[in-house]
Structures are given as structure tokens and as C-alpha cells.
Computed example of a mutant assay.
Amino acid sequence: MKTENQQSPVITLASTDEELQGILVLQEHNLKSQLSADEQMSEGFVTLKHDLALLRLMNQPHRHVIAKLNQQVVGYALIMVPQMARHMPLLKPMFERIEQLTLHDQPITNDRYVVMGQVCVAKAYRSSGLFAGLYARLAETMKPLCDCVITEIATHNTRSVRAHEKVGFKTVSCYTSNATEWQIVLWELQT
């Protein structure tokens, strides 16, 4: 519970290398490889580890959504355009499946969607509405530019699956890659 003197994180768009470095610090603390099985189950996790050069590249043409408190990044939502597929070979299976999807009986072409590259909220700010706030800012930013946001979630990352469902994501495809079952989820912005 927040007291009167506590500030709330500010949700904004990443614009500096310091903010991108803040994303990397938060990401490192929440990587699946850094967490026990119990923590993964109860708190969720992120799978991919990025570097500063890749985050800079991903931050164009659409900037990442971040939550900051006292200059510290306490949450982020990474946005990727479909053209990032060539820079991220581990995501190739997801991008191949996205190419087969339709929305209202029309193919989902590259100009109709962005990919949620990863979303993470610092442990102290979970269940505070910050996750939904990151996505609200993302929708505000992207709604004039595309129809939907698509991402994939490891099926056993139940906290993330539930959080995305609450925002409005719907499962549109499932597949298995490297012994992990994945759900491709879609959030329609143009409703």
C-alpha cells in the first residue's frame, strides 16, 4: 500500500542510453536463468537477454514504454517492428507463425501490427496496476499506427499469461519450440 509520501512511477517513452541501460538491469534481475523454479512460477520471468546495441535498434521507429521512479527503470514494455525478425533468430518461429495469422479474415501484414518484445515490472511494483499502465501507454502510442500488438508467452509462465489476458490479449496460436510450449497472443487496438 502506498503512503502519502510515496511517489508513483512515471510512464514515458525511452529516449536515452541511461534508460535503455535501466531496462537491461531490470531484465537481468528477472531472467528465467536467474530465478528459482518457485520464483518463476509465482513471479513470472523474461526469457531473452538483450544488449544495449539491440535495444537501441529496437527503439526505432517506435520507442519502448518505460516506468521510472527517481531515475530508475521499474518497468518496461519493449516494442519491435516485424523487420526485427532478422536480428533475433530465436524469435524466428514466432514470426513465421505471425505471418500465417489473420485478423477479421484479412492477413496480418507487417504494417498492421507491432510485436511486444518483452514486458517486465520490478517485483516491488507488481499487482499495482503498473503492468496495465505500460500497456495503456503502448496502446495510446500505437493505436494510430497499427491494428494490433502480438507477442508470445511461454505457457508455463502463468503469471504473464494471466496478466496479458487481463489487458485484453487473446491466444491465437500455440506451438512448441526447443521443448517449450508457446502461446501467440494478440491484442486488438482498433476495436
Rank of each mutant, 00 (worst) to 15 (best):
K2W: 07
E4H: 11
N5I: 11
T16N: 01
D17S: 13
E19W: 02
L24P: 02
V25E: 05
Q27K: 03
L31A: 02
Q34D: 08
Q34T: 13
V46F: 01
V46K: 00
T47G: 01
K49P: 03
H50G: 05
L52M: 14
A53Q: 13
A53W: 02
M58A: 11
N59D: 06
P61A: 09
A67I: 11
A77G: 07
V81G: 08
Q83N: 13
H87L: 07
P89R: 08
P89D: 10
L90N: 11
R97D: 00
R97S: 01
I98Y: 03
Q100S: 07
L101S: 02
H104T: 08
D105V: 05
I108F: 03
T109R: 10
T109D: 10
R112L: 04
V114D: 04
V115L: 05
V115A: 02
V115Q: 03
G117C: 06
V119F: 00
V121Y: 00
A124S: 15
S127F: 06
L130K: 12
Y135N: 11
Y135P: 02
A136E: 15
L138E: 05
T141D: 13
K143F: 08
D147S: 12
C148V: 06
C148E: 05
C148R: 05
A154V: 04
N157L: 04
R159N: 06
R159K: 15
H164T: 02
E165H: 14
F169K: 01
F169L: 05
V172I: 15
C174Q: 15
A179I: 06
A179N: 13
Q183E: 10
V185I: 15
L186C: 12
E188N: 10
Q190F: 03
